[in-house]
């Protein structure tokens, strides 16, 4: 992806960030993005504060995306542990989440008081429509990024049928889907 990034400056490695720096660094990340903050995590960690190299970032992110759960929270744990051990692994995700959670809870308070007003309902309807469009766009982008589409798109179709139409429980669908789709991928990898 980012193969041609400029070489690191000749200065020695940056000093390990303190707990304070971890907290505020990740706070900045958390408050920067709307509907996903991963690009901002990259900007802070790699470009601005240089806590990680680009290659390092991709490896660590690979692990965070491999495991389920909120990827960027996982990433905060990884970076926190790396520089400050257990305290860092607690402080970094806290920094990431505290600001956004406070804001969203404030909005929730407003919603509880004014959510029944017709104007509020109309606004939320408009935002939901945009959110829905963003989801379709994200699905499209991710779908187009899949290589060997003829082989793997059928699994997308199966997932949509099972989840959106049949409304089967997701844990079952994911286990079955991973066995099938992962099995095909395993077979494909063996043929190379």
């Amino acid at each position: 992806m980012n193969i041609a990034h400029p070489p690191a400056p000749p200065s020695g490695p940056e000093p390990a960030p303190t707990l304070n720096a971890l907290f505020w660094g990740f706070s900045w990340v958390g408050l920067s993005g709307f509907g996903g903050v991963l690009p901002f995590a990259r900007r802070m960690l790699v470009d601005e504060r240089r806590w990680m190299t680009a290659v390092d970032f991709n490896t660590q992110l690979g692990m965070c995306q491999f495991l389920p759960g909120p990827n960027v929270v996982n990433l905060a744990v990884v970076v926190g542990k790396r520089y400050q051990g257990l305290p860092g692994a607690i402080v970094a995700p806290l920094g990431l989440l505290t600001g956004p959670v406070l804001i969203v809870l404030l909005l929730a308070l407003l919603y509880d008081h004014y959510g029944t007003l017709p104007q509020a309902q109309s606004v939320l309807r408009g935002v939901a429509a945009v959110g829905c469009g963003l989801l379709f766009a994200m699905a499209w982008r991710m779908g187009m990024a899949i290589r060997e589409k003829a082989l793997f798109w059928p699994f997308t179709l199966l997932t949509v049928s099972a989840i959106a139409f049949l409304r089967w429980p997701m844990p079952l669908v994911m286990i079955a889907g991973l066995l099938l789709s992962g099995g095909v991928a395993y077979w494909k990898l063996g043929r190379k």
Binding site: L31, P100, I103, L107, V127, G131
Partner: peptide, 11 residues
Amino acid sequence: AIAQAAPGPNV
């Protein structure tokens, strides 16, 4: 919709 309109991770 509220989660979409607020800054922060998807969670």
